[in-house]
Amino acid sequence: MNANAFDRYLERASAVHRLDPRVKVIVTLAFIVAVALLPDGTWAAYGAAALLIAATTAAARLSPGLVLRRSLLGLPFLLAAVTVLFTVPGRALWEGPWGLVVTDGGLVRFSSITLRSLLSLGAAVLLTATTRFPDVLHALRHLRVPAVLVAIIAFMYRYLFVLVDEAQRLLRARAARSARLPDARGGGSLAWRAAVVGHMAGQLFVRSLDRSERVYHAMQARGYRGELLTLAPHVMRRRDWLALMIGGMAIATVTLVGRIA
């Protein structure tokens, strides 16, 4: 595989894609905070928030199915929340075995957690799909995230692909050497298999360490002396301010609907 296969950015000629990344980062974060603050059972507000996601998806020319599919990624985690079905007091809706009772309060709470989580994930999916990661990093730097942290994340993003390819080669080399009879599980004991992975991790570590040294040399060779300078690639235009305003107003509306309902 080429590590590029997991790039989640989707190139489209849309107004959302062209927006200043700072606007998109701020609006996304504000949206997620606003959704987290919505009380349980404020269905109208969840609906309004979902509408906002749907409208942005359309404006970004992304397929709603794709955004939904990616938003479902966090769903396995929902199982951890299943217990609230039984533990929140309320009117009994359904009696299960072992004295477990699903209450209406529990159902409301569980559905609310599910919806809020889906909505937040939807916003994050939209940010990632419409904004290239280096632009997100520029936005973070402009939004006063410490430069060192942003730089470390930028380097990580760059070498992620290189090292994943390297890990891939290690796995492939293992696969090439592990012949397996049709009926045997093969590959030795569980502990042995874990140890093989451990050795691969160790090898990858040593190689990565050497690489970091070479990268450091390459930086020095081009005049790096501890301070990382970058171009300022983004300028807020009128439409960016407009989008920021509209986004802010839409999020305020969602919050308002949640309070009134």
Partner: peptide, 15 residues
């Protein structure tokens, strides 16, 4: 710091 921490983070991700 930056190249070392960045490449090492990529290492953990890959590992």
């Amino acid at each position: 710091l930056v190249p070392l921490a960045g490449v090492m983070a990529a290492f953990i991700f890959a590992a």
